[in-house]
């Protein structure tokens, strides 16, 4: 940075000591090398600023300079200083990693890799690779590729085979195991980024989203279903077809069933796999009245004249 000390600090020749200090602090904060690690010229600028300040803040030196007895360049030899940034980027800087003591820098690597080596391109309209780096046992493995896959409720419950077309044109056959949970990640070894220079290939990580079903709900290995029945089916009993994961199954409704009654179809939940027994299908009855005609109304009136029923008696608070 060329110029007189006054020019370097941007002050007038008759500036007061306070003005000089204020100008110096403003510039020093802006150009401090440790606050500008990416700017190679910051150190030179900072040294000029410091030298100019050293000279102008010393009344005697400033007077001698003003009289022309010393020149600014002669005073510009600021003591050779080792700045923090010269150390902080080395391995020893790891001691002052963000967030306190302990741990290794490599822990934070995955973040930076995920950001830096992200691959673009959507995948089949439902998600895409998110790119993540990974280190295995100290040896660098090629990057894992992350994909998102959306499957139907039934596919996740019963298992399925899906073929993905990757952005680079490869296809990947994915076996969805029966009973897959939402958010579960399938790892396909060696199907990520190809290995270079003898490094092992990365894995493909497939995060699976399960779409909700319009009438089945899942609770672990069991499936729940609200089943609408007519008042007649509930009162008189009936044999009706109930949807299950694998298709309709006939089920007997006992007579005098009521709304909320739960019936179980054993083994009709998530299929048995890997030593786990199959789950069950729980069917909860929901009486649907429909539109009564005159005869039904008469029958109901006659019935309630003979019987006093208070279905709300349990709603009274007992204190």
């Amino acid at each position: 940075m060329a110029g007189t000390p006054y020019e370097i600090l941007g002050v007038k020749k008759d500036a007061t000591a306070a003005q000089i200090k204020s100008a110096y602090l403003k510039l020093a904060k802006k150009h401090h090398p440790d606050l500008n690690p990416g700017d190679k010229r910051a150190e030179e600028r900072f040294k000029s600023i410091s030298a100019a300040h050293d000279l102008l803040s010393d009344l005697e030196k400033r007077a001698r300079y003003d009289r022309g007895e010393i020149d600014a360049t002669g005073q510009e030899r600021a003591p050779d200083r080792k700045f923090y940034r010269g150390y902080a980027e080395g391995a020893q800087g790891g001691r002052y990693r963000g967030g306190g003591q302990g741990g290794a820098d490599s822990a934070a690597f995955q973040d930076i890799f995920a950001d830096l080596f992200r691959n673009g391109g959507p995948l089949g309209g439902q998600g895409g690779p998110q790119g993540a780096g990974a280190f295995a046992g100290g040896r660098m493995r090629s990057a894992d590729q992350r994909y998102q896959l959306t499957v139907s409720f039934i596919e996740a419950a019963l298992g399925a085979a899906r073929r993905l077309t990757l952005p680079d044109g490869r296809t990947l056959d994915v076996t969805i195991p029966a009973g897959l949970e939402n958010g579960q990640v399938l790892r396909l070894r060696g199907q990520g980024e190809a290995g270079v220079n003898g490094q092992p290939a990365g894995d493909a990580l497939i995060e699976v989203d399960i779409l909700p079903h319009s009438f089945f709900r899942r609770d672990g290995d069991d499936i729940h279903l609200d089943l609408p029945v007519t008042a007649g089916e509930a009162a008189l009993g009936a044999k009706i077809a109930v949807p299950t994961l694998t298709g309709p199954v006939n089920m007997s409704i006992p007579r005098h069933s009521d709304t909320g009654r739960q019936l179980r179809l054993r083994g009709r939940g998530i299929p048995a796999r890997g030593g786990r027994p199959a789950g069950d299908l729980y069917v909860t009855l929901k009486i649907v009245l429909g539109t009564p005609d005159a005869a039904f109304e008469e029958a109901l009136k006659a019935f309630y004249e003979r019987h006093t029923i208070d279905p709300r008696k349990h709603l009274v608070e007992t204190s």
Partner: peptide
Amino acid sequence: VLSLLDQLYATRRQLRLVLET
């Protein structure tokens, strides 16, 4: 300020290490 600087330098160390690898 130190925490921000430490994070800045950690990032630069990591980048450097990445490039050196």
